[in-house]
Amino acid sequence: MADPELYPADQLHEHASLATSESPASRLLLMAIAFAFLGIFLVVPLVVVFEQAFAKGIGAFLEAIREPDTISAIKLTLLVAAISVPLNLVFGIAAAWAIAKFEFRGKAFLITLIDLPFSVSPVISGLVYVLLFGATSLLGPWLKMHGIVILFAVPGIVLATIFVTFPFVARELIPLMQEQGTGDEEAALSLGANGWQTFWHVTLPNIKWGLFYGVLLCNARAMGEFGAVSVVSGHIRGQTNTMPLHVEILYNEYNAVGAFAVASVLAGLALVTLVLKTLLEMRYGAEIAATRGH
């Protein structure tokens, strides 16, 4: 937890001069304010999720989790993540390869476009697909004639999820691969490896932790997305309800235990994500791009 080797230096420093650090009293005050703020805004909300989920005992919690609609929401969430995360993974690798290993015109613009979904409201991310595939759109009648259902069904949910999680893997890999340069790949190629071998045996081992990091964040968002999915889902219980949407339905029915039981599963997933993320940063910090956050 604490870094023991830092203490001697710190104490030395304190003796050396108070001028380059705050006085012990103001240190304590600043820390107290910071902890109080984090406690109220982060810790207490997290605690309340689990407190409410188990408010009526573990039996009620298990019952809420075992409810068929909840099970189908969990399955749908896993399915959506299982489709959208690998697609964005492939895109992330392809985009990072093109951007990091080559010099071409318009690269900066391309990077801006990749980041675009981060500055679009989730609701708008869903709306664009409603406009594209909805009954009043150009494609609408054609889709209907051919019996293709996209909106208010799984394909729409998958598309909206891909949209909001689009940049995660790419923006993790691009700075990482740019930093690594092209030397390793050029060496492999000059030794007679073909392109695919070079990628598989040289590039992939170099980027694997950064890649895992990006996938982790992408997956967390894919499973937790609410706004975009809410617009395209149609909210059909047991059919097009993902876990976050199911939380909303249960909550609006005043089924607090049910809502918080499903919410606690999602919160557990968030905690696992944070633990893995921290472990990755501790062990492979240098290999992971400096773009923390998002």
């Binding site: 937890m1 309340v48 964040l217 937790g224 919160a267």
Partner: peptide, 24 residues
């Protein structure tokens, strides 16, 4: 002590689904 845990907690809003944060 526990600085790393506090540091990791700061990312909670990135990881916690917004609907969960909303009802909590």
């Amino acid at each position: 002590p526990g600085r790393r845990v506090v540091d990791a907690m700061v990312d909670l809003p990135f990881a916690l689904p917004t609907a969960v944060a909303g009802i909590a």
